[in-house]
């Protein structure tokens, strides 16, 4: 669906490239996530892919064609949900969506249909100026689905959302994936990336430093150990045991059978830990 080779872009007046020699592929129907701290080059990469930034160097093919050879029809095939709300505040959600729907040539979804998907059905006639930040972000998502896109770009889709609505967004992405939609997510939320993405790419200082499935990354960078604590709360003892062959570990068996266990934790790593290990940076 997307093939990028040696993509490099420098902002006008910028000294260093915002993205440098970026290469990756996104398969059809895949949910691909760009992870990285603020200013790493995630949104720049997305803005290049949606045709808002040029000139860039390298090769970018989207939906079987070089990006530069697409005309305005490209926007009939993709959906874009930006990180920050972008709506006419004096208009209601329905008026906003009617307006944006009129900008498309083909058949579009109704405002009722897309607002129901993001849980804003009851607020359809409320002016957007009266919406909370989370509601505005969900309206961004609703608008990006108006044209039934086959390629969907989401920039920080759960930003400003409460946990319930974040789960709704996750389910929405999964549902679209089941319908064959390819999704590119830009985020620094490791939990949403772990839950949603088939593969993630770590971007730091404009460079892609790692790219694989979250489960593969966690396996590769995680520690296959169990930590056991036992004894009294005042003076606990603890020990580490490798997961491999743990059933044959006599000491581990002894502790389980004869001691008072305080805690027992496997040392699986998180995507955030992997990121820190790979890049030496945190995501904030």
């Amino acid at each position: 669906m997307i093939t990028v080779e040696d993509l490099t872009f420098t902002y006008p007046g910028g000294e260093a490239p915002a993205v440098s020699e970026l290469s990756f592929e996104v398969a059809e129907g895949e949910v691909f996530g760009f992870l990285g701290p603020s200013g790493a080059g995630k949104s720049t990469t997305q803005n290049i892919l949606i045709g808002l930034l040029d000139p860039w160097q390298g090769r970018v093919d989207v939906m079987g064609k070089p990006l530069g050879s697409w005309g305005r029809d490209y926007y009939g095939r993709i959906g874009v949900s930006f990180e920050l709300p972008n709506h006419y505040l004096k208009l209601s959600a329905r008026e906003n969506l009617d307006y944006f729907a009129a900008m498309y040539d083909g058949e579009t979804a109704s405002p009722e249909e897309v607002l129901a998907l993001v849980g804003l059905g009851e607020d359809i006639d409320k002016r957007v100026s009266d919406y909370s930040k989370g509601m505005k972000n969900r309206l961004n998502l609703a608008r990006s689905l108006l044209n039934h896109p086959s390629l969907w770009f989401l920039d920080e889709p759960t930003s400003g959302l409460d946990p319930v609505n974040a789960v709704k967004v996750r389910d929405l992405v999964k549902a679209r994936q089941a319908q064959g939609v390819t999704t590119v997510i830009t985020t620094h939320d490791m939990l949403i990336a772990d839950a949603l993405c088939d593969r993630v790419g770590f971007i730091v200082d404009g460079r892609l430093v790692e790219c694989d499935a979250p489960s593969a990354l966690k396996r590769r960078y995680g520690t296959r150990e169990v930590v056991v604590s036992w004894g009294s709360e005042e003076a606990p003892s603890s020990a580490r045991f490798p997961l491999d062959g743990i059933g044959a570990q006599a000491e581990f068996q002894r502790i389980l059978q004869s001691e008072t266990i305080l805690s027992l934790h496997s040392q699986e790593t998180t995507l955030e830990d992997v990121f820190v290990q790979v890049t030496g940076r945190t995501l904030r």
Binding site: R72, F82, N86, H87, Y88, F100, D105
Partner: peptide, 18 residues
């Protein structure tokens, strides 16, 4: 200007209407 300030311009730029 309001279209720019409310960032609706950004959303309009990614529709087929130039």
């Amino acid at each position: 200007l309001e279209t720019r300030e409310e960032r609706a311009m950004q959303a309009l730029l990614v529709t087929p209407t130039p």
